[in-house]
Structure formats: C-alpha cells, structure tokens
C-alpha cells in the first residue's frame, strides 16, 4: 500500500499518573475509511484529541503526507487539513445551514459585508457534491433538521475546507435506522472522494459496512490493525475485550 496520509508512531500521552496512550501506532491512507474501535477507556477519544491538537502528545511521532509534523493546537491540525466532527456536532441551532457551515470563516465582500450569495452557493454545491439531498432549504435553522441531517451538515462543514482527513466521533450513536443509513452512505462517499476518514464507533455492524480497515485499541495500546475483508465481527470483539485472538485466523471458530 502507498504511503499513509497520517501516521502516528509510538504515540504516548499521560495525564498525571494515568497512561491514556502507550506507544500507539496508527495510520490512515487517503481514500480509506479507518475505523477506530475499543472498549470505553481504551483511549479512542484521547487519540483523536491528540490528532486534533487538543491534547499535545508526550512522546512519539506524527507524520502527515510523509513529513513529520508537530500538532500543538486545533489551528495546527486545521491548517494540515484535519477536521473533526465531534459527537455533539457543535452546531448553532439558531443559525441556518449556510451560517453554520461558514461559522468562524465567513466570506466577506465590499465594506466588510457578509457575502451571503457566495456562501450560500458554495454551501449548496458542497452538500450536492456529497449527495445530501434531504435538506430542503439551506436557509432553515439547524434546529429544524433531523439528527441525520444535522450530522450531514456537520460533515459537509468539515469537508468544505479542502480537508484531507475527516475524523467522525460516533456519528451514528444517536440516530435511528433510516438516519444511520443516510450517514453511513455519506461516510462511504467521503472515502470515494479520496478523503481519509477515521470513524469511531461502537457499532461493529456499521463499521463492517463502511470501513476498509480497523484499528483496535485496548487499555491505551494499539493491539491490532485488521482489514475488514479478512476478519469477522467476532474476531474484532475478541480483540477489543482480550487484546489477542485465541485462535489462528482462518481456522474454525470456537464459541466459548
């Protein structure tokens, strides 16, 4: 496989006496959906916060597009083209879709006026390029949108800024069946567009549907990196809970 877009080698992060991450290795390629799984407290959130620049790492190396980089703040990661969609989505309910997508990065025209026309056009184009067709008007307040639509807006907002890597934190956790489908389709399209996607989820069914590879974290260590095609949900569950496989892959499963 080609050179990874983002590669973490031996990343360690401690909070006082707690070792949140211990020599974690992690890599994601452009055009690939990488799932990050692990039990509660395994270090998933800490890992993405390290990538996003919220927690600077204590040791280890991060390379982006082959160059070693230091990410010491959210601005650094945004500059590299890394966007994170957090679980709470960080949308303003009272603002409309366009206003949310451009929040903090509004386009201005003459006299420092907001350039609403350009912003609305670009927002529509971005949503259309992601085939988000369920949002009827980009001028309705986000409060009027369903959970799936809000997720779509948050993802479109992340994608709009020429980002290369999009990290999605539990995008389907609070969604119903139809809305989960909508978001999973969107995740697949992101990969098809050539973006690198990191997907955090507890739902192995969703992961097996959209992810190409899976990185398993356990107690702050990366214990395995498996390809979805060559594994089963049962194996992944075993890796999450025990950290190792009790059998050689390919052999008949032994159900305890």
């Amino acid at each position: 496989m080609s050179e990874p877009l983002l590669q973490l080698t031996g990343v360690t992060k401690t909070f006082g006496a707690v070792n949140a991450l211990t020599e974690v290795d992690f890599a994601v390629h452009a055009g690939e959906v990488m799932a990050l799984v692990g039990d509660n407290g395994a270090g998933k959130s800490t890992l993405i916060k390290c990538i996003a620049g919220i927690h600077p790492i204590d040791a280890g190396q991060i390379t982006f597009e082959g160059r070693p980089v230091s990410i010491s703040g959210p601005k650094d990661s945004a500059k590299l083209g890394i966007e994170v969609v957090y679980q709470d989505l960080a949308l303003c309910d009272n603002l409309d879709v366009v206003q949310n997508m451009y929040l903090g990065r509004e386009k201005l025209s003459s006299f420092r006026r907001l350039d609403e026309t350009t912003m609305e056009r670009t927002a529509r184009e971005t949503l259309a390029s992601l085939a988000v067709t369920t949002i009827r008007s980009v001028r309705q307040p986000v409060a009027a949108l369903s959970g799936g639509q809000r997720q779509s807006v948050a993802v479109a907002k992340a994608v709009m800024w020429n980002s290369k890597l999009v990290i999605l934190d539990e995008p389907t956790a609070a969604l119903g069946v139809a809305q989960t489908r909508q978001v999973l389709d969107l995740v697949k399209r992101l990969g098809d567009k050539g973006l690198a996607v990191v997907l955090i989820s507890h739902n192995l069914h969703d992961i097996f549907e959209v992810a190409d590879r899976i990185t398993v974290l356990r107690l702050g260590r990366s214990v395995a990196e498996v390809t979805v095609k060559d594994t089963t949900q049962q194996e992944v569950v075993q890796l999450i809970t025990a950290g190792t496989l009790s059998h050689v892959p390919g052999q008949a499963e032994v159900v305890a």
Partner: peptide, 16 residues
C-alpha cells in the same frame, strides 16, 4: 418526513 435519500440525487440543487 423521512430521511432516506432519494435514489437519484438532483445535481447542483440541494433543495427539493
């Protein structure tokens, strides 16, 4: 209102 995407997206137009 359902959230299932229609099978054929309308290019260039987000709104229904």
């Amino acid at each position: 209102m359902t959230d299932i995407a229609p099978p054929t997206p309308v290019p260039g137009q987000v709104t229904g």
